[in-house]
Design a protein around this nucleic acid. Structure first.
Length: 560
DNA sequence: ATCCGCACGGATAAGTAGGACAGCCTACT
């Protein structure tokens, strides 16, 4: 029996912390569990091994109490205190907290006063009008709950790409270490296509020795067991609940099965019948096509692009010269301005925009005008130190009424301005859209960050009138961001495609709070490529002089 | 619950606005 994985321990602690919160524990105590979960999820080695040695407390954020929980979990597979807690606070209540507008306090009251323990119970209580009878709840709340139940149900069973892709890559690495070097293997399916959510993990293995491959898969520490074995298609389940589909084929058919397992269905339909071949290239070649990158296998115009030799015009990582949106210790980032700029220079960035949060985003220690000015002085100083162009920027809050955190004269002092909507995303369509129009028309605003405001599998996008938003952004020349944070991937691929069609300029930014955040660029790039973006349409690929000229045209007094 | 400066006790995660309701809960990175 292999040890539990770090992500299993992390999930356990996270669940524990959430249940404590619903149970009314102090926020400091519950927070400690969440922090411990984060520390373990990011810990480079196997935490279970540390637990067995009794040295798990060496990890920052884990003390006597949580170490005890982890050790018990590793040893016995469960935790007695957590079981007892679950008698008092049913674990299915965690689903209820996911509903927008319901927090721990409301959920525990629904449980205590109406005996509601899960989504089904909540739904029937709302439908029969029992919730409105509780003090502090109303018909309106009831309706909000019913809408919320739907959105929680819609996303159940799917995982964010950002949660699954790193796991999939690690599985492949682990398999490579076990299996003979001649074995071919790769991720396939929606993970390989970089779809924003995935239902399960697909792996294709090309080997003459099926039994060895199956044994290797079964022995992986994250695999809990085999679920079905149907010839070439073997299904496993991981400890954290994710399904793993392995397609095990002879090496001569590895290429064609990769294409089939990668999909998508519409792309396969466009390709028609496929010849057996050991590599994807060979299959595409026999169809008279170059290799089509997985993320654009969408059944749209990718065949056309390939036939007319235009795949190379799609934006790629190598075309990116820098980023406009990142954070430092001045708001909620991890490093100083100088450290951040140095890290950017080391990565080969030719420019970097520093854009910390502003005043009204108190939770992120947003800058007021005075601190902004002080930061600006610090930014200017770094320009001579690191050899890259540093733009003084800010991620300026858009208030519910559409006003920005700074007056025009303060905005005018910045090299480039990003506007960002974090509050009031649930406004009705007309109100929300009109508010954004005001921001787009502001000549001091150059970029709209994560325009829809969605958090994948967690928060619905704002209900904007996108067609009019894109038309307006195209006219004002305001760039729209594809935020590469895997929780956001915002604009979505479809919205980015619409924006391009409307003539909008795009920018791809990682919204990094630490240099490691720049490793997530691929999530933003995927959406840009799915949307068919070329370098000309993405601000980050322009030479610094062209960016400065663009800013100058927009009326900025750009100083180097 | 954990960490840190000090050796046990305090700090840690802000603070405002909005919605629904009459004093409270939730959302925002």
């Amino acid at each position: 029996m292999p040890d539990v994985s770090n992500s299993e321990i992390a999930s356990l602690l996270e669940r524990y912390g959430q249940l404590l919160e619903i149970g009314g524990e102090s926020s400091f105590r519950t927070r400690a569990y969440t922090r411990a979960a984060d520390a373990i999820r990011h810990y480079p080695g196997p935490v279970a091994a540390l637990a067995r040695q009794g040295t798990v407390q060496t990890i920052e954020g884990i003390g006597v109490g949580i170490a005890g929980v982890i050790e018990e979990f590793v040893r016995t597979g469960s935790v007695d205190d957590l079981k007892n807690l679950q008698k008092r606070v049913p674990i299915s209540l965690l689903d209820l907290v996911e509903i927008p507008g319901l927090g721990a306090k409301s959920v525990i009251r629904l449980f205590a006063e109406l005996g509601i323990v899960d989504l089904a119970g909540l739904e029937s209580a709302a439908n029969s009008g029992r919730i409105r009878e509780l003090a502090g709840f109303s018909i309106k709340t009831e309706q909000k709950i019913l809408v919320g139940i739907e959105s929680v149900r819609r996303r159940s069973g799917r995982y964010r790409l950002g949660a699954v892709l790193p796991l999939g890559r690690r599985l492949i690495e682990e398999l490579r270490a076990i299996l003979p070097p001649i074995t071919e293997m790769s991720l396939a399916g929606s993970v390989r296509r970089m779809d924003e959510t995935v239902a399960d993990l697909d792996i294709v293995i090309g080997t003459a020795d099926r039994a060895v491959a199956i044994n290797a898969l079964s022995d992986l520490p994250t695999v809990s067991g085999m679920e079905s074995d149907e010839g070439e298609h073997v299904r496993f389940r991981l400890h954290d609940g994710l399904g793993l589909d392995a397609i095990i084929v002879s090496p001569e058919r590895f290429g064609v099965e990769m294409i089939r397992a990668t999909g998508n269905a519409a792309h396969l339909a466009l390709l028609g019948s496929l010849p057996d071949a050991p590599s994807e290239e060979a299959v595409y070649t026999s169809l008279g096509l170059p290799l089509i990158p997985p993320e654009i296998r969408l059944g749209r115009n990718e065949i056309e692009l390939a036939r007319s030799d235009r795949l190379g015009s799609l934006i790629s990582a190598s075309a990116m010269r820098g980023e406009f949106h990142c954070h430092t210790v001045w708001s909620d980032g991890a490093l100083s301005v100088l450290e951040t700029v140095q890290a950017a220079a080391e990565r080969g960035f030719q420019f970097l925009g520093i854009s910390d949060h502003t005043r009204s985003l108190g939770v992120a220690n947003g800058l007021d005008a005075e601190r902004l000015q002080a930061q600006r002085a610090e930014i200017i100083k770094t320009r001579t130190q690191c050899g890259i162009r540093v733009f003084a920027s800010a991620e300026v809050e858009v208030a519910r009424n559409g006003t920005l955190d700074f007056d025009d004269d303060v905005l005018a002092e910045l090299d480039i301005v990003i506007a960002s909507t974090h509050v009031g995303l649930r406004q009705p369509k007309e109100e929300l859209t009109t508010r954004l129009f005001g921001v787009l028309e502001n000549r001091h605003v150059d970029i709209i960050a994560h325009p829809s405001g969605r958090l994948i599998e967690q928060r619905e996008p704002g209900d904007f009138d996108w067609e009019r938003v894109f038309a307006t952004a195209a006219r004002t020349g305001t760039a729209l961001e594809i935020n590469a944070d895997p929780a956001r991937m915002d604009l979505s691929a479809d919205h980015a495609r619409q924006a391009i069609a409307a003539g909008c300029l795009l920018t791809i930014n990682c919204d990094a709070h630490h240099p490691a955040g720049w490793d997530q660029l691929e999530y933003g790039l995927a959406n840009a490529r799915k949307a068919g973006a070329t370098t000309d349409q993405v601000l980050n690929t322009w030479p610094v002089e062209r960016i400065e000229a663009w800013l100058h045209e927009r009326g900025r007094s750009v100083r180097s």
